[in-house]
């Protein structure tokens, strides 16, 4: 039982990071109808900012939690302005290809610039592992697991609240619901799109800060995060923020359980199997956006 609990805790920790990354994907898609395949690259850059701040500059860890979302959000906004805005009226295929190659460009630029296998980032919280008695047995939980799980989930729920209740969230939801209608109500497409990319990029930056100590900073982080974030988002319904959170947690737990009781090598295969099962059972995901209207 203790072993099972430790496996679940590990899965929830990874799942919380996946959830945070998935929310960023969903926010951008919900507001701009753009599927951002460069999101993994933004997460990687968020982790890299953490490395620069904590390891190179030796600033306090909290500065990474402030700077990474600001910098990566601004970068995402700039990418929207420079690369995606000119092709906004192009067909969906063109936009998707642009984000795919944007993601590759971010990863490869990092790879060429760093020339290293991986940059290591220390944990934000330190301390000996906590031993929690469980009958005659005991399970172990570390301060980092608690911090990452709670921190990432709280950030995710804060993002969800911002999107649902704040003014900027209202503009994004209006744009997602009906672009023409939103424009007639006075919302600017350019402004809302820029805000959505900033918001999504900031969430990616924060996901990078949380992911850096447990996954390291490398181009492979971009690939692993983007695939997990997409699986989580699709499981959740792709346009549902709460769905992205639950999809991320579910994916993290299923991956870790499969690593523990099947094989580490089967982890990715099991996560895609989960995706197929969910889509066969509920093609619109677990939390599909309501299409009907109350009359």
């Amino acid at each position: 039982m203790a072993e099972f609990i430790m496996v679940i805790i590990g899965g929830v920790q990874f799942g919380a990071i996946y959830a945070l990354a998935a929310i960023g994907v969903v926010v951008i898609h919900k507001a701009t109808r753009t599927v951002n395949f460069a999101h993994g690259g933004l997460v990687m850059l968020g982790a890299f900012v953490t490395y620069l701040v904590v390891v190179e500059l030796r600033w306090p860890y909290w500065t990474a939690y402030v700077l990474a979302p600001l910098l990566i959000g601004t970068l995402a906004m700039a990418l929207e302005l420079v690369i995606l805005r000119p092709i906004r009226r192009a067909d969906m295929f063109t936009v998707i290809m642009a984000t795919i190659f944007l993601g590759i460009a971010l990863s490869e630029t990092f790879r060429l610039a760093q020339n290293t296998e991986m940059l290591a980032v220390p944990s934000a919280v330190k301390g000996p592992p906590m031993i929690v008695p469980l009958g005659e047995d005991a399970f172990i939980v570390t301060a980092e697991q608690i911090w990452v799980t709670i921190g990432a989930l709280l950030t995710g729920f804060a993002g969800l609240a911002l999107f649902r209740y704040a003014g900027i969230g209202r503009s994004m939801r209006a744009m997602a619901s009906n672009i023409r209608g939103a424009q007639l109500c006075g919302f600017s497409i350019d402004r809302v799109y820029a805000l959505a990319w900033f918001f999504g990029g900031a969430l990616a930056g924060l996901a990078g800060v949380f992911a850096a100590p447990s996954k390291g900073v490398s181009p492979e982080l971009a690939v692993s995060v983007i695939s997990a974030a997409f699986v989580a988002a699709v499981i959740g319904g792709f346009d549902s923020l709460i769905g992205a959170i639950i999809g991320g947690l579910l994916l993290g737990v299923v991956e870790t359980l499969s690593a523990a009781y099947v094989s580490s090598a089967m982890k990715s295969a099991v996560s895609f199997l989960l995706l197929f099962v969910v889509l066969l059972w509920r093609p619109d995901g677990l939390f599909p956006e309501r299409k009907g209207r109350d009359v």
Partner: peptide, 8 residues
């Protein structure tokens, strides 16, 4: 490049 050593 493994990052997860749960099973091992």
């Amino acid at each position: 490049g493994a990052r997860d050593f749960t099973s091992q």
